[in-house]
């Protein structure tokens, strides 16, 4: 861990180098002040560097005002400007806990992996599981399917919502699923129905992972696939638990990373404490204490 003199440096940066997209977030005292998402390139170090400059320029902040830069995601180690690197599992959990503190299960559906974290006390992970080598349900899988169906990836979710009767897709391996989809196309099935079927399969796959945590609490969905309304809808139908999807599910990892910055929280707390002490008169405090 790098110790940085934090005076005059109120901004923290989280960089999430995912398999498909790189997300950069700038944070000031827990509030997002700027963010940017771009497709991950071959040189994630350079890319994130330029993305950061772009954001900082946009909000008019000098580079010197940035405190910590925390990187996460699969390419976290290739970010030269980062002060520390944390795994995406930790960061997504952190971000999720920040947004919805009482979420018990955090599901991150990213470009290459699905990760399910069971939260313990105080926002610390109790345990987690991930998909093994199989990539079904991840962003790459959806990309492949969209390509096979010749649908723009951004429209995949909405189009499947129009489906009246979802097709059945059973294969649980990207290659086999693709050939199944192709054969469905050949049979003349409607694209929307195939998409709905795919989403249903993905939802079932995620559900299996969620169930294996054996927790019945609130589920928090994040990661890029969280933006796919089709998957979210199917998941909501079968998950049988309370489910929250944030506005920008793909940014949660970067947010968590920025929150990982070891800022002393005491200073903030102290202010609150003193304010309270001054405002509450002794008798009132005593009464509050005695009841």
């Amino acid at each position: 861990m790098v110790d940085i003199d934090l005076s005059g440096k109120p901004y923290d940066v989280g960089i999430d180098v995912g398999a498909i997209a790189t997300k950069v977030i700038v944070l000031k005292e827990g509030e997002i002040v700027g963010s940017l998402v771009k497709n991950t390139s071959m040189e994630p170090g350079k890319l994130s560097d330029s993305m950061l400059s772009e954001i900082l320029e946009g909000i008019g902040v000098r580079k010197e005002e940035v405190g910590y830069i925390v990187s996460t995601g699969q390419g976290r180690r290739s970010i030269g400007i980062a002060d520390m690197a944390r795994t995406e599992i930790t960061c997504f959990a952190k971000g999720a806990h920040h947004l919805v503190p009482d979420s018990e299960i955090v599901v991150d559906i990213g470009g290459h992996g699905i990760r399910v974290m069971r939260m313990g006390e105080m926002g610390v992970i109790a345990d987690f599981r991930t998909n093994d080598k199989c990539s079904t349900g991840t962003g790459c899988f959806m990309d492949t399917m969209a390509m096979a169906l010749e649908v723009n990836i951004e429209d995949v979710g909405d189009r499947s919502l129009h489906s009246k009767m979802a097709e059945h897709v059973n294969a649980s391996c990207t290659v086999f699923a693709e050939s199944e989809v192709v054969s469905l196309i050949a049979k003349g099935k409607i694209t929307d129905d195939i998409l709905a079927g795919l989403h249903n399969m993905v939802a079932r796959k995620i559900l299996a992972l969620v169930n294996s945590t054996r927790s019945k609490g609130k589920v928090f969905i994040c990661g890029g696939v969280g933006r796919n309304t089709g998957v979210v809808k199917e998941l909501r139908e079968i998950i049988n638990r309370e489910m929250v999807v944030p506005e920008d599910p793909h940014l949660v990892g970067a947010l968590g990373a920025a929150l990982m910055a070891p800022r002393p929280k005491v200073s903030v707390k102290k202010e609150v404490d003193t304010v309270q002490k001054e405002e509450v008169p002794f008798m009132k405090r005593f009464l509050r204490w005695s009841t």
Binding site: R86, E88, I89, T90, G113, V124, I125, F128, T130
Partner: peptide, 23 residues
Amino acid sequence: GDIEQVRTRVEAFIEMIKARREN
């Protein structure tokens, strides 16, 4: 082939243990 995947999980696991410790 799976070294990086395994490493991510192990790192997350150890980060988690250390976070628990702090808590």
